[in-house]
Amino acid sequence: MNGGAVWWVFFYALSAFTLFNALLVVTGKNLFKCALHLMLVFLGVAGLFLLQGAFLLAGVQTLIYTGGVTTLILFAIMLSEEVVGRQRQLVSRGVSIGISAAICFLGIALTIFGTAVAQLPENYGVHIAPVAQFVAEASHLPMGNVRAVGVALLTQFLVPFEFASVLLVVAVIGAIVIARLAGGK
């Protein structure tokens, strides 16, 4: 894995590809094209997951984000007639807000990389180790680390996992309620 000139070439090429498309997403004026660039960003991230040996994550990333989320976004764009085909200035000019958001993101990223998460040795028992070590260990597990992810989700990370599902259910119910309110009038 983490070695060889070819690996680094791929890594930097993919990173550049992802960042370039991400830039186009936020600077583009045509909303539909922005969404298509977003799809390329998702694919680039999936490629980066592949490079790290996280095959399951790459697959799920493609299935849910590239196939699902992009489609929903495109669908929403096409349904909102106002936006279709119209050129718009989509870049926010709030510099202070932008900088504070960037600082927040940096803080979160540093916190995540500093914090220890679960580590899964061969027998799938869970103990605590830093992120980098976790990634290195998990990628050597058999079956493309499906089992490792499954065990981690249903043991160490059960509560956050369930919270995520509750959040999704709340979002779905909220969407239905809003749709009903709008449709009733």
């Binding site: 539909f32 298509l36 799809m39 095959f55 399951l56 697959g59 799920v60 493609t62 299935l63 590239t66 196939g67 699902g68 992009t70 489609t71 495109l74 669908f75 096409m78 279709v84 085909g85 079956m143 493309g144 499906v146």
Partner: peptide
């Protein structure tokens, strides 16, 4: 592939983006 069937599901899910795109881009 270890994740063969997941790979197929993931890859083929991209098709729909192409179809929507074709519809929109045709004007």
């Amino acid at each position: 592939l270890n994740l063969g069937i997941l790979y197929v599901l993931a890859i083929t899910s991209i098709t729909v983006v192409g179809i929507i795109t074709a519809g929109w881009a045709s004007g």
